[in-house]
C-alpha cells in the first residue's frame, strides 16, 4: 500500500510537469506583460525590472529557472501584489478557501447521501419527487445565480446575514450554502440512482430471499454498493471546492485563493497564475489518490496495481 502511494506520486510527476509546461508557455506567449500599466513606465526602470525578473533572458532559460525554483518549493514573487511572494498569498488565502470548501463538502456529502438514499428507498412517493425536483433545481441553477440571489434575499432584503465580507461565522453561512447546494443536488442524484440500481441487483435479492432484516439489506448490502460512484465523484469535486470558487469569492468578497487565477491571468501576474495552477494540480492529484485508496478499500475487486 505504501509502495502504491509512492508509485502513484511518481506517476503524478509527469502529469504535473506537462501541466506546468503548457501553462507556462501559454501565459508567457500571451500578449502584454505584468508591467504594462496605464502610464508606460520609464524605459530604464522597465529594463531594470525585466533584468530583476529574468525577463531579458530567452524564454526557455526562464522556463528552466522556474522549474528549478519550483523544485525547491519557491513559487516566486507576485507581480501585481508587490511586497508579497506567491507563497505568502497562498499561506493567507488557502486556509480561507479550505475552510469554506471543506465545510461545504462535508455538508454536501452528509445531506446529499442521506437525501439520495431516502429518495431511493421511497421511490415514486412524494419524498422521492421532492428530492428529485429539488435536485434538478440545484443542478440546473448555476452558482453565479444562486450566490447573488441568496445575498439579495438573506443579506439585502431580510438583513439576517451579512450580504458579503469576511470575519465572523455569519459571513461564512451564505458562501458555504452557495457552494454546498449544487453539490448536495448532484450527490443526492448520484446516490439515488446508485441505490435504486443496487436495490435491484441480484445480491440484494439474495439478501432478501434469506430473510435478512431490512436494515441489513439496505444498510449493509445496498448502500455500500451505492456509495461507490459518490466516492469516485468526490475526488475532483473536493479538489475544486477546497481550492476556492472565483464566483463565490467575488460575490461575497472573500479573501480566498479562488480569484487569484483570473486576476493573475488578466494582470499577467505570471508567477501567481503558475502558482495557482500548481496548487490546483496538486490538490487534484492528491484527492484522486485518496479516492482511489478509499475505493479499493470499499471494493475488494479493485486492487492496488
Amino acid at each position: 500500500m505504501f509502495a502504491y502511494v509512492l508509485r502513484r506520486f511518481a506517476g503524478a510527476v509527469p502529469t504535473l510537469f506537462i501541466i506546468v509546461t503548457i501553462a507556462f508557455f501559454m501565459i508567457r506567449l500571451a500578449p502584454g506583460g505584468p508591467f504594462d500599466l496605464e502610464r508606460p513606465l520609464d524605459p530604464l526602470i522597465m529594463a531594470n525590472l525585466e533584468r530583476a525578473f529574468n525577463f531579458d533572458k530567452p524564454l526557455w532559460q526562464q522556463y528552466l529557472i522556474y522549474l528549478g525554483n519550483l523544485a525547491q518549493g519557491d513559487l516566486g514573487p507576485s507581480f501585481t501584489r508587490r511586497d508579497f511572494t506567491v507563497m505568502d498569498l497562498f499561506r493567507t488565502g488557502l486556509p480561507v478557501s479550505i475552510q469554506i470548501g471543506g465545510m461545504a463538502l462535508s455538508i454536501a456529502l452528509v445531506v446529499g447521501v442521506f437525501l439520495g438514499a431516502l429518495a431511493a428507498l421511497r421511490q415514486n412517493t412524494w419524498v422521492d419527487y421532492m428530492v428529485v425536483g429539488t435536485a434538478t433545481f440545484g443542478i440546473t441553477i448555476p452558482t453565479f445565480v444562486i450566490a447573488p440571489l441568496l445575498s439579495l434575499f438573506f443579506g439585502v432584503m431580510m438583513g439576517w446575514l451579512p450580504a458579503g465580507g469576511w470575519g465572523t461565522w455569519q459571513h461564512m453561512v451564505l458562501p458555504i450554502a452557495t457552494l454546498a447546494l449544487p453539490q448536495i443536488a448532484i450527490i443526492a442524484r448520484l446516490t439515488r440512482g446508485a441505490t435504486i440500481e443496487a436495490l435491484r441487483s441480484n445480491h440484494v435479492r439474495t439478501a432478501r430471499a434469506y430473510g435478512l432484516p431490512n436494515y441489513v439489506v439496505v444498510g449493509v448490502h445496498a448502500l455500500r454498493a451505492a456509495i461507490l460512484p459518490v466516492v469516485s465523484y468526490l475526488g475532483p469535486t473536493a479538489a475544486a471546492l477546497l481550492t476556492g470558487s472565483v464566483v463565490v469569492e467575488t460575490i461575497f468578497g472573500i479573501p480566498g485563493i479562488g480569484r487569484y487565477f483570473v486576476q493573475g491571468a488578466l494582470g499577467r501576474d505570471y508567477t501567481l497564475v503558475m502558482g495557482t495552477v500548481v496548487v490546483i494540480a496538486c490538490f487534484v492529484i492528491v484527492f484522486n489518490l485518496i479516492v482511489d485508496i478509499l475505493y479499493a478499500w470499499l471494493d475488494p475487486r479493485v486492487r492496488y496495481d
Binding site: I27, A30, P31, F261, V262
Partner: peptide, 18 residues
Amino acid sequence: DILYSLPFIFFVILLVVF
C-alpha cells in the same frame, strides 16, 4: 486524459487572455 486534468476555467481564461 491530460487535457482533462487541466482545469477548464484555466484553459478558457488563457485562451481568452491570449
